[in-house]
């Protein structure tokens, strides 16, 4: 079995299994805890509270204007990274092909030049985020091994993807194998560390929005 066939076959199967089982275990470990019934009379009916939760998922994506002078730079940098990653992930032709194979849906791909630029910007943003984490006194103090492992785990697929698109340092097969393996590493790590925010961000914002709508307070 070659490295590529391992990555495409058993490697991917194991990574998928760990991803799904790990996410399921973590989410059920949180959501199945005993829930206290809220007896206080709500200011808003159930439907408004539900709407409050749903709306907060979107509104919390952007800080209130008053916070921007202090957090703006970090927020913009994070958005550059996330938007860049989204463009590469869902605009690159090979990625769309894989999504089509698995889910049966497809959409037009972006020109390769756009993807190359987006990849470069994403990688640069990611490196700047690491530098910021290492230099900013608050981020430096808060950071745990998970923050650095997660950074590396996200860096590798982007980095190997850029190498793959250029096919310069090694052959296509080897680079593709390393690219797939790095994605599998990400899939395996995701449920256990902060990358789980891909799911928790919606649950957290929604829960806060629902609870504060109950009080008739700002979300």
């Amino acid at each position: 079995m070659t490295l590529l066939s391992f990555a495409r076959g058993p490697g991917m199967q194991v990574a998928t299994l760990i991803l799904i089982a790990g996410m399921f275990w973590r989410l059920s470990g949180i959501l199945l805890l005993r829930r206290r019934v809220a007896h206080a009379a709500a200011r808003n009916p159930f439907a408004v509270r539900l709407l409050g939760g749903a709306v907060t998922i979107f509104t919390r994506a952007i800080p209130r204007r008053t916070f921007w002078p202090r957090v703006g730079a970090g927020v913009v940098l994070n958005y550059v990274f996330h938007i860049g990653l989204f463009i590469v992930l869902f605009g690159g032709a090979p990625h769309i092909l894989i999504i089509h194979e698995i889910f049966g849906v497809a959409w037009p791909d972006l020109p390769k030049g756009v993807i190359v630029v987006a990849s470069g910007i994403t990688l640069a943003a990611l490196i700047l985020l690491l530098v910021r984490r290492l230099c900013h006194p608050v981020l430096k103090m808060l950071s745990k091994p998970d923050d650095y492992i997660s950074w590396l785990i996200v860096f590798m697929p982007i980095f190997t993807g850029i190498l793959l698109s250029g096919e310069t340092v090694a052959g296509y097969g080897a680079l593709l194998a390393w690219h797939i393996l790095s994605i599998e590493a990400l899939m395996i790590w995701l449920p256990f560390g902060k990358l789980m925010h891909v799911a928790l961000v919606f649950a957290g914002r929604g829960m806060l929005g629902y609870n504060f709508s109950r009080k008739g307070a700002a979300t």
Binding site: R26, G29, I30, L31, L32, L33, R34, R35, R36, P63, F67, V71, G74, V75, N78, H136, V138, L139, L142, S143, K144, D147, K194, M196, H197, L200, V201, A203, G204, M207, N211
Partner: peptide
């Protein structure tokens, strides 16, 4: 600790905001 508190304790991404 119930689901709301657990969710909060699990969610921090150490952004420092």
């Amino acid at each position: 600790v119930g689901p709301t508190v657990a969710l909060s304790l699990e969610s921090c991404v150490h952004c420092g905001q």
